[in-house]
Design a protein around this nucleic acid. Sequence first.
DNA 1: CGTGGAGTTGACTGGTATCAATCCTTGTGG
DNA 2: CCACAAGGATTGATACCAGTCAACTCCACG
Lengths: 252, 252
Amino acid sequence: MTLEARRIDDLFPREHLQPPGAEGRTVRIVAGGEAAVPDIPRGSWQRVFPLQHERQLIRARHSIYRAGDILEGIPVVHSGWAARIRRLSDGRRQILSFILPGDLVSAGAVFSDRLSFFVDAITDVRTTVCKRVPLDEILAQSPRLLHALMAGCLAEKTEVEELATDLGRRRAEERIARLFLQLRTRLEVLGQVSGMSFDMPLRQQHIADATGMTVIHVGRVLGALRNDGVVQINGGVLTIADLAALQRLSDA
Amino acid sequence: MTLEARRIDDLFPREHLQPPGAEGRTVRIVAGGEAAVPDIPRGSWQRVFPLQHERQLIRARHSIYRAGDILEGIPVVHSGWAARIRRLSDGRRQILSFILPGDLVSAGAVFSDRLSFFVDAITDVRTTVCKRVPLDEILAQSPRLLHALMAGCLAEKTEVEELATDLGRRRAEERIARLFLQLRTRLEVLGQVSGMSFDMPLRQQHIADATGMTVIHVGRVLGALRNDGVVQINGGVLTIADLAALQRLSDA
DNA sequence: CGTGGAGTTGACTGGTATCAATCCTTGTGG
DNA sequence: CCACAAGGATTGATACCAGTCAACTCCACG
């Protein structure tokens, strides 16, 4: 009963998502680094949520959705990175979460069609949209799936609560360290981490908007981390040089 | 379909909650200052969620629940103020939300029994606990209620996202102004605002933990607001002296 | 080549945190 | 009824983290 759905891996072909050979075609249920619970029967997602329309391409740095938009379906990011963002009228931005390949844009989208945030493409992004289905129909067809979806929704909420704690009570270095470790964990599940490095298309501005800092200060902290031999970013690749140190920073 | 349940007003007798005469005994659905949608048939909450045990008294400044606790039911705060809190190992604390009389401790508690946060009593608090009921049973007995509960859960998530934005991107004065306005809106629904004043049992430490500041700086900002004739707190009563100014501060 | 996005660096400012002392309030027990 | 303790609020002095402004470099790209 602790299923949590944020990623629906068998929602679409896995060219980018899965190393060949891994053919366990169950819905993979993953949340914030916790245990995967692969016991939803194969294909339950597609059976319950039929495809509404195929892939759509959004160019890097463009908005995918805007706050107030009414979703006609449940969007899933197929490839590329995106971000859920809140904007203030004077231009300040807070990134609420990063959306990686295979993620639902928001678990809440299964149950509600009104967005309270913006979704911006960071890299080029391909999306798929599935049909939203009434609650009772989901329940009838796959009770486990419904549970998993609701748990995913709760997990998303918990993650935002962690974010709020980071923003309110942790300092610059800690926040950046935690962001990097979180990204590594999530990308590891996707098989996109090789050793201590992974592709990281975020600009310093994205890191700043996610951690509640200014770009310039992000630059300084990153510089310090590089000098101290903890983390470095080179050509869009993040390399953790001293994992223990990074974990120490993110602790408490 | 935009029902949102966070407060279940007819869950218990209303001595403290409702001025006599207001006898519209429907479940009142309220969220973050948005429209109430009172169209759930009377008593649906009690029918679906039977009382598990009666009021329990928790003394001010004591913990009600701890992160990791397994809830045996769905707790509702009957009287008094409480707070949902995240703690770091070194003692830093972030308040995620305040729980006012009539609030569910967390809308998520209807669907999941594991807490990821602490719940502390700010004043003396009385709680009631209802039995948790399987999804399909709720759906069968009152589909509207289920929708309302899920919407309430999503609303709670949206509120935390707003909090994260406040913490990440707004400054001290803005955050405090927004907190006070939010409290006023919520208390107004409870009929606990008279003119421009309301009881506000929060200590400066609570305000600090909610806004991500230190007590001392909270004290300074409050002092400034008092000197500028915007807000003052006296003997546990908050009085808004200049609403327009307060709204200006909280804007953007 | 230019142009614009991105990163780096330095000097300076300012908002908050930290430490410490005092005072006020409230509750408690003698 | 008083004394005392504990919690809370206020104030001052000082330190430091992070924001602001500005200049410069480095690219990728057309």
